[in-house]
Design a protein around this nucleic acid. Structure first.
Lengths: 102, 102
DNA sequence: TTTGTTTATCGCAAATATACGATGAATATA
DNA sequence: TATATTCATCGTATATTTGCGATAAACAAA
């Protein structure tokens, strides 16, 4: 992909918001996030039981949500417990709230 | 891409929300949307002056926003005036509001 | 140490996204 | 009719996303 001036032409907030939105741009990740919002934390294994997807695929979606800063993972050997990213979540809410004028 | 049961495993709302989020998943489209939210409508030509991107690229981003239902275009020869999609906008607000518990 | 459990990562294939220049379509004006 | 303006679409190249199975890593328990 060719990116020139555009790379620096966006504000931090615009890039953050786009990254958050991009991470929300798949129905599986919407569902995962809903689970974490509504019923606190869960393990990867719980999700592989719910979704008709391979374990590796679920893990990739979790990685995408984690890298976007929407969720965080806590290692509890041999499991990993995922929760909302409590630090970033207020920013997520604020940025969408501001954009959509809610 | 292989999709099996998953295609039907998502609710309409989840797919809609994912589509909206996906369309918001690029900083240029965030900026375009901001312009339309804050200063009403604009023409494609206005945007090609603002962004350091080819006219065809801007047009593609507008198409993405339009197909997601976020904006609508009105032909005013030889220009096209883009505005927020007034019909869909309340749904956009509602779905994000519900997800993020705003 | 060996085995089982759980999860992440690698490697691959197919689909989608992003960018550009070139071209086409629609319309107003000369 | 011919020209200029505006915008969309086409064709192409490259990057990213999405999915899978296979494998590796981390650790508990036998």
């Amino acid at each position: 992909m060719i990116r020139t001036l555009a790379d620096t032409a966006y504000s931090l907030e615009e890039r953050q918001l786009a990254d958050f939105a991009k991470a929300l741009g798949h129905p599986v990740r919407i569902q995962i996030l809903k689970i974490l919002i509504n019923q606190s934390c869960c393990f990867t294994g719980n999700l592989t039981e719910i979704f008709p997807l391979a374990q590796s695929t679920i893990s990739q979606h979790l990685k995408a949500l984690k890298e976007a800063g929407l969720i965080q993972g806590e290692i509890m050997p041999p499991k990993v417990r995922y929760c909302l990213n409590k630090e970033k979540w207020p920013l997520v809410q604020t940025l969408f709230k501001e954009l959509l004028k809610l």
